[in-house]
Structures are given as C-alpha cells and as structure tokens.
C-alpha cells in the first residue's frame, strides 16, 4: 500500500528495510530497485546509518562520488571478505613493482642495443666505402649481420608484436635503405651481392647477371622480390621477370612456358659463367 501511493517503485534501500520511499529519499538515487544486491553489500559493510553519516557533510556532486566509492568498496568486500580493498591495493603495488623491474630490464637491453647499433653503423660505413673501391667485403661483416636480428632471450615472452610491426614499418617507408635492412635479415649472401650490384650500377651487363644469379640461387627470396617491385624494376631485366612469373603463375600459356624455358636455359648457362666471373672478381 505504501508503494501504490508513489509514482515509482521504492529504492533498493527502502525495499530492503521495508519502509516507504519518499520523494526525497537520500539513498534512492544511488540504489535503484532493480539492484538489491548492491544495497545489500553496502548495508552489510557500512549500514544505512553510517552511509548517511558519511553523506551528511558532503556537496551534491561529492555525494555521488562518495556513494560510488562506497558501493565499490562494499562490492569488493563482498567478493573478498578477508582482504577487501586492501587486497587490491597489495596487488596493484605488486604489479607496479613488477612493471618497474621489467622496465629496468628493458632499459638495460635497450642500452645494449643502442651501443650495438652505434658499432654497427660505424662498421657499415666502413664496409660501403670498401665496396665502392671494389674491395671484397671483410668476413667479419657477415658475422656481424647474422647476429643483429637475434632477439634477447626474455624477448620471447613479449607480446607477439615484433614481426608484424616490423613488416608494416618496412612497407611504410619503402625506400632502398630500409630494403637493404630487410634483405639483411632474410639472407646475408644476397645482401652482399646486391650491395655489390648497386655499387657497380654503371655497368649494365654485370647488373643483369648479378640480379639474375641471385634469383636463381635463392628461389625462396623471389617472393620477397615480388613485394619490392619498385626497387627491382630499375635493375632487373626482362628475363628475370619472365622467370619469376613462370615460377608463380601456374596458369600461364604453354607457348610462353616454352619460350621461358629456353630463355631460362640460356640464362642458366650465362649464369654459371657469370658466377665464375663473379667469384674471380670478388677474389680480385
């Protein structure tokens, strides 16, 4: 009969206490009738009298915040009767400690990489200058580059962003410098050959041979070339294009295949002789 008189249902607090919910009920805005558990928790921990005591000296907006914190605190106490919010505080402190420890480790690794990077940059400039002079690349450069892509052991536990991020970053700045870096990660031998090819860019004959040789000797890398068309269009010849197309386009016509095959045979022979020539050049 008390409820019939009002326009709306009694709040959860009044419902719980089985009393009339007045229009100015101080708890009605915070305890909707459809959430009796919320009030039960707050009532169990604080009690209505204590909640009202807390709210008494606060402003309207402060009251809303205080009620939210009271309800949160009560819910946590209901879930964890022993530790309540204190348990959450301990857990957060532990997480902060953990994050700080991890941050320290990552900073140390970063410092190590930064140092390594500086060394690498200096050695890389040395290598380029030697290549421009027509000298063979020193052996230690190869070992240096094979070391760089390795990640630290703890890195395996990190979220799986490295590879995807890495790839996207390369497609974003698609210039020859970054391409050289990516090649470095894929195959060291071809990297050195292309360094050589770009260094001797004026001799068109040797360029064709060099690029074709790398395509024939490293079939796995062809897929990678496909993604790097802008760079390869400048140095690649028509034969290598047909070759790569034949390798990937299974539905190509028969006649085209025949011509490709014959061209490929010729190219293969040329390649072998060129490879011999290259090895001689590199020895010299």
């Amino acid at each position: 009969m008390t409820l019939k008189g009002g326009t709306s249902q009694a709040c959860a607090a009044c419902k719980y206490q089985r009393r009339k919910c007045h229009a100015k009920c101080p708890l009605a805005p915070y305890f909707p009738p459809d959430q009796p558990k919320m009030f039960a928790n707050a009532h169990k921990l604080f009690g209505v009298a204590n909640i009202l005591k807390i709210l008494k000296n606060l402003d309207a907006d402060q009251k809303a915040e205080a009620m939210r914190s009271i309800i949160y605190q009560s819910d946590i106490r209901d879930r964890y009767p022993v530790h309540g919010c204190w348990g959450i505080i301990c857990q957060l402190r532990y997480r902060i400690w953990q994050a700080e420890e991890e941050l320290q480790t990552v900073h140390a690794q970063l410092e190590m990489y930064r140092h390594h990077y500086q060394q690498q940059v200096t050695s890389m400039t040395d290598d380029v200058s030697q290549l421009e002079l027509g000298m063979a690349p020193p052996n230690n450069s190869l070992s240096l580059f094979s070391h760089t892509p390795q990640l630290p052991a703890s890195y395996n536990n990190a979220p799986p962003l490295p590879l995807s991020q890495h790839h996207h970053s390369y497609s974003d700045n698609n210039n020859s410098t970054s391409y050289m870096d990516s090649k470095d990660n894929v195959a060291n031998s071809t990297w050195i050959q292309h360094q050589y090819a770009t260094a001797t860019n004026n001799n068109s004959n040797s360029i064709a041979i060099q690029s074709h040789q790398s395509a024939a000797s490293q079939p796995l890398v062809v897929h990678d070339y496909d993604e790097m068309h802008p760079f390869f269009d400048t140095i690649d010849d028509r034969q290598s294009y047909i070759y790569s197309k034949e390798a990937y386009d299974s539905s190509s016509e028969e006649s085209l295949k025949d011509t490709t095959q014959s061209i490929e045979d010729v190219a293969e022979n040329e390649l072998k002789s060129a490879a011999a020539g290259f090895s001689l050049i590199s020895v010299n």
């Binding site: 959450i88 505080i89 957060l92 990489y113 990077y117 990190a158 890495h166 970053s169 870096d181 990660n185």
Partner: peptide
Amino acid sequence: ISVLQRQVIRLQRELDATNADLIRYACNE
C-alpha cells in the same frame, strides 16, 4: 586504488614505448 591504477597504466605505457624502441633496434631500424 585509483592512484595506484594510474601508476600501473603509466608504467605499462612506458614499458610499451620502451619495448617498441627495443624492437626497432632489434630489427636494425
């Protein structure tokens, strides 16, 4: 709790950023 949570988020962000730097170095970028 709020203060500690913000601290956790700040540290996590810092950790993410530092990890991103580390990745760049590790990938020779």
